[in-house]
Amino acid sequence: MKKLIEIKNLSKEFDGEIVLKEIDLTIKENEFVTLLGPSGCGKTTILRILAGFETPTTGDILFEGLSIVNLPPNKRNLNTVFQKYALFPHLNVFENIAFGLRLKKMKEKDIVQKVKQMLKLVKLENYEHRNVNRLSGGQQQRVAIARALVNEPKVLLLDEPLAALDLKLRQEMQYELKEMQRQTGITFIYVTHDQEEALTMSDTIVVLNNGLIQQIGTPIDIYNEPKNRFVANFIGESNIISGIMIDDYKVKFEDYIFDCVDRGFHFNEPVDVIIRPEDLSIVPNDNAPMVGVVESIIFKGVHYEICVIVNGKEYVVHTTKNATIGDIVGLTVEPQDIHVMEVGVVLNE
């Protein structure tokens, strides 16, 4: 796929406070990219710089090879879906969506046709003459998406567009957004703090913290091979254990040498070991590599969340099998489910 946007060495300061630090990012055509991170990590600032509402302190952005940092927002070939929708309250649904087309002095006949087509895409047929103030949150969001998409931008920027919706609607909209992206072939750059949203929709996830990129990768990469403690903690739940790399494919923690799939560390190098809760299994305590006491059990619907104390440390286990509080149980993990990371690659935490 072709490179569409190249962000080069981008930094941004607000009143001497650094919010973005040397961001390098390449976005390809037709990609669904998610900027993921906690609030204040700089993800919205990147989006606002891309849209042209903020200027970077240093660095450059290339759009199809040409720098756009000095271009005003109305001259950029990308459109934004705002977090609070920002629909024009004095215009009805039709006029809101037609806003960009009217500015292009398009023929009325074409405008009507394009708006109708968009309303169909966002499933709001026959809503043309509705007052936007009387629509529900989900409907307003659809109008906002249609208003941006109707201009056929190369890139659609979405700033936490689902944050104000309830859980059920949010999940529905996740699938619909992904579907719209596939249908229109437009590159989506999506900002969210919701890791589940990011995992569900994205082709590429960019994890940010404190203005720094922590990791760029596919959802599977990010989930299974987190680069550091921050990413491991932020994406899903993790058991993070300090261990020692004895040899290639051998890691020692909890006084037991486990087989693993990682290599290339120094001998006896201290490492962080990450095990996802669903990768730990409860087994009979004889012969198990780790033995502990069941401290608490929470029923989560699909699985139980069981807390097991091993050598004074807490391990979270997700399992479909129940246990009893106070039981002495064994814990085991498959070699490919043990992820070994260097210690101290935590960026700027």
């Binding site: 509402f53 927002p73 309250p89 941006a148």
Partner: peptide, 14 residues
């Protein structure tokens, strides 16, 4: 709302 003004610029308005 400033967002409305930004939205107008974003949609191509001078």
């Amino acid at each position: 709302d400033d967002n409305l003004i930004e939205a107008a610029y974003d949609l191509g308005a001078s």
